[in-house]
């Protein structure tokens, strides 16, 4: 079990130079190949946590372990960490530095000191898997928000890291772009990449994650499978989070004695299957 843990924090503390105590003793273990949602309201420390995972911020207290060994905060140690852990920032304009999409995406791979033809192949692969090969020769300042967001993801894919963190990937995106990005995530997951997503959207966490960490004011207030976390009424109340709508509906239906399925459905499809089974002609079977 423990060799499965790729990233771990032990009593991690971080205080910003202005005195904001953003992380107050984070204990977290991220298992390889999982889809993890870090859920919390604005200012709960999600983004700070991601920056410490990547070694951009150095914790004042506590430690960060990558595959069981503590991260060394020297040049070699950090570049090793950043090679394996990528972070897609929330604001694409804060991440995109080049005016050319092609050069922008190539940056990370060039920093890995790979041969040029490998970089070229990786850039093409990254653009293809984010569905934007047609943007290759475009200028970044002519792109739409959704396109910029996907360029940001390609930026990281090109480095082929083992863990990718996404800071609020679906915020400000319309439904169609959200679906496209979730599709990219699913493909990455199938390829074995560990994905960590920060979000304040309980529905996204419910639908997508294998494991949910709930953060509040710089501490991990709760962790577990989505079902465990969202069944914990007290935890939800403490962290001011809503229960996912599907779960609420199913609980009501159960309370009324209409259905008796063991766990609530995770996806829309599962939910509709349950609804289908309630149709009158199947009534005898359902009850």
């Amino acid at each position: 079990m423990s060799e499965n843990i790729i990233l771990e924090t032990r009593d991690l503390h971080y205080t910003y130079p202005d005195g904001t105590h953003a992380l107050k003793g984070i204990n977290m273990a991220i298992r390889k190949g999982r889809k993890i949602a870090v859920l919390g309201s604005n200012g709960s420390g999600k983004s700070t946590l991601f920056l410490t995972f990547n070694g951009i911020l150095k914790p004042q207290k506590g430690g960060l372990l990558f595959k069981g060994s503590p991260v060394r905060y020297n040049r070699a140690g950090l570049s090793e960490l950043r090679k394996r852990i990528g972070i897609v920032f929330q604001d694409p304009d804060a991440q995109l530095f080049s005016a050319s999409v092609h050069q922008e995406v190539s940056f990370g791979a060039m920093n890995l000191k790979l041969p040029e033809d490998v970089v070229r192949r990786r850039v093409d692969d990254a653009l293809r898997s984010t569905g934007i090969p047609h943007l290759k020769s475009k200028a970044t300042h002519f792109l739409s928000y959704g396109e910029k967001k996907r360029v940001c993801i390609a930026d990281i894919l090109v480095m082929e890291p083992e863990v990718i963190m996404f800071d609020e990937p679906t915020s400000c995106l319309d439904a169609q772009h959200t679906l496209q990005i979730m599709d990219v995530f699913n493909r990455l997951h199938k390829g074995g990449t560990t994905l960590i997503m920060s979000t304040h959207d309980v529905e996204v966490a419910w639908n997508w994650a294998d494991e949910v960490f709930i953060m509040k004011e710089g501490v991990v207030a709760g962790a577990g499978s989505p079902h465990e976390v969202f069944s914990d009424e007290k935890l939800l109340q403490d962290t001011c989070l809503e229960k996912p709508l599907v779960m609420k509906v199913i609980e009501q239906l159960k309370a009324c004695g209409i259905i008796h399925t063991p766990g609530p459905p995770r996806t829309e499809k599962e939910f509709f299957e349950i609804m289908q089974s309630l149709r009158p002609n199947k009534k005898a079977g359902a009850f």
Partner: peptide, 17 residues
């Protein structure tokens, strides 16, 4: 911060078209 997280080492290396 974003450049650093992608392994920026003081010089911007990119592919030329």
């Amino acid at each position: 911060a974003a450049l650093e997280s992608r392994g920026y080492d003081g010089e911007i290396h990119v592919l030329e078209r």
